[in-house]
């Protein structure tokens, strides 16, 4: 028996919004530590890694490890039926070929359940080693989303250059060029609003705007985002989900022809 109950059901709604444009299907791997999902987009350029820890749920039971392959479009349709304040419960029997989502309104006056067929997915799983990155940038997630949106008007690619002083986002295209510089915050009053840079070596990398814009669909999950970069390895864009886990996106940098 698998059962995961979340009073803050809107988290699951937001998680689906954060992955459904990038992935069409994915496997939710559940064990007694929680729920994990790892999947690449169709072009194998980016990867989503989601972790929701068992202790972040209001009730969590997983008697046997279970892998549930789901069509994410269908999951998104079902979660759209949940109210923002609803409690969401996912449950499945051992070896079941369906999963059930139960939504309860805050006053318990409305209870809905949606049963969905599971899929057998044979998806590739990548091993991502623990990596020390040359630069990590923490910044407000809304600011990052705004920068990605603004710069994608200028070109398909965005250059992110990180130094000790700050981080510069640039794009160049037919209409001209754009540069946005963010300085490291001098004094941190509210950590959520700060730009904090940890740097061992300066790094400059180029990324496809389209993917960065997909990643920013996770903005509502966290007030802050962390970008981790090293020369010649994929960028990691991480949104921490309060008290329960994180969603990380990996994106291979573009390289010179």
């Amino acid at each position: 028996m698998f059962e995961a109950r979340l009073l803050r059901g809107s988290i699951l709604k937001k998680v689906l919004e954060a992955i459904k444009d990038l992935l069409t299907q994915a496997t939710f791997d559940c064990d007694d530590s929680g729920i994990q999902l790892q999947a690449m987009d169709n072009s194998h350029v980016s990867l989503v890694s989601l972790q929701l820890r068992a202790d972040g749920f209001d009730k969590y039971r997983c008697d046997r490890n279970i892998s549930m392959g789901m069509n994410l479009n269908s999951v998104a349709k079902i979660l759209k039926c949940a109210g923002d304040k609803d409690t969401v419960t996912m449950k499945a029997q051992d070896n079941a070929d369906t999963v059930t989502f139960v939504f309860e309104s805050p006053n318990q006056e409305k209870v809905s359940d949606y049963e969905m067929k599971l899929m057998n997915l044979d998806l590739e799983h990548l091993g991502i080693p623990e990596t020390e990155y040359s630069c990590t940038i923490r910044m407000p997630s809304a600011e990052f989303a705004r920068i990605c949106r603004d710069l994608s008007q200028f070109g398909d690619s965005m250059v992110i250059a990180c130094t000790k002083e700050g981080v510069k986002f640039s794009a160049t295209g037919e209409i001209g060029s754009a540069n946005i510089k963010l300085a490291q915050t001098a004094s941190v009053d509210k950590e959520e609003e700060a730009v904090i840079i940890e740097m061992d070596e300066p790094v400059t990398l180029t990324f496809a705007c389209q993917y960065l814009n997909y990643f920013t669909k996770a903005t509502s999950l966290s007030p802050q985002v962390q970008l981790s970069m090293s020369a010649d390895v994929p960028l990691v864009v991480e949104y921490r989900i309060q008290d329960i886990g994180h969603i990380r996106y990996y994106l291979a940098p573009k390289i010179e022809d």
């Binding site: 690449m40 072009s43 194998h44 350029v45 980016s46 990867l47 990548l126 091993g127 991502i128 080693p129 690619s157 180029t206 496809a208 390895v233 994929p234 990996y250 291979a252 940098p253 573009k254 390289i255 010179e256 022809d257």
Partner: peptide, 12 residues
């Protein structure tokens, strides 16, 4: 101007 590598070039 630029090539977009896939993730397999970094991770297996």
């Amino acid at each position: 101007c630029c090539i977009q590598p896939i993730l397999h070039q970094y991770y297996i």
